[in-house]
Amino acid sequence: MPAKTLEDLFIHALSDVYSAEKQLTKALPKMARGATNPELAGAFQTHLEETHGQIERIDQVVEAEGLKLKRIKCAAMEGLVEEGGEVIEEFEKGAVRDAGLIAAAQKVEHYEIATYGTLCALAKHLGLKTAAKLLHETLLEEKATDEKLTKFAQMDINEAAKAASK
């Protein structure tokens, strides 16, 4: 029987992002190892810790609102993680790979920002105040990570990649 309620949509989206975050916990250590810039590698490690916290927050949402997640695999994150892996495989270690890893990570962040923004809106419409608050915390973290990645790119990594390309 197809799902048809707004709550069904919320549970599906929450289940999907739970899968996405789980996939990310496996991808971030690879990205950290693949990075040349130690600050970028550290940022990936920091985001791994945040991601574990975001998974815990989803667990809190499920418990607080009495929800049951579906066992699904986030196809979007699977593709984004694969793209990050391709950067590691196709570019030798150095500034160009770091620039590619930043681009791949920002694609992930933009996906997560869109997803958590949607979840916050759905939670508000459904009157799930605890869920809305917890999901908003994660949304703010994802936006902060995206801004941090932009600063890395603008500060010196893209310039170093340009110099390495000559």
Rank of each mutant, 00 (worst) to 15 (best):
M1W: 11
A3T: 11
K4R: 13
K4D: 11
T5C: 01
T5P: 04
F10I: 06
F10H: 04
D16H: 06
D16L: 08
Y18S: 15
Y18M: 14
E21W: 00
K22H: 13
Q23C: 09
L24C: 04
T25W: 04
T25H: 07
T25N: 06
K30F: 02
A32I: 05
R33F: 02
G34A: 13
T36V: 01
N37F: 04
E39D: 15
A43V: 11
F44Y: 11
H47R: 09
H47Y: 05
L48C: 03
L48Q: 09
T51W: 01
T51K: 02
H52Q: 13
H52K: 15
G53S: 06
Q54I: 01
E56A: 15
E56C: 00
D59R: 15
D59G: 12
Q60Y: 01
V61C: 07
V61K: 01
V62D: 08
E63Q: 14
A64V: 02
A75G: 07
A75P: 00
A76H: 08
A76P: 05
E78P: 01
G79L: 08
E82K: 14
E83K: 08
E86W: 00
I88L: 13
F91R: 12
G94P: 08
G94C: 04
G94E: 08
G94M: 09
R97C: 09
R97H: 06
R97E: 07
R97P: 01
D98V: 03
G100T: 04
L101I: 06
I102Q: 07
A103C: 12
A105P: 06
Q106L: 03
V108G: 08
E109W: 03
E109T: 03
Y111T: 05
E112I: 06
A114Y: 07
L122K: 01
A123G: 07
L126Q: 10
G127L: 06
L128D: 01
K129Q: 14
A131R: 02
A131N: 02
A131V: 04
A132L: 00
T138W: 11
T138S: 15
L140I: 12
L140N: 11
E141V: 03
K143W: 01
A144S: 13
A144M: 01
A144W: 03
T145R: 02
E147H: 08
E147I: 05
K148H: 09
K148M: 15
L149Y: 05
T150C: 06
K151Q: 15
F152T: 04
D156V: 13
E159V: 14
A160K: 13
A160I: 03
A160S: 12
A164K: 05
S165W: 12
S165V: 03
K166D: 12
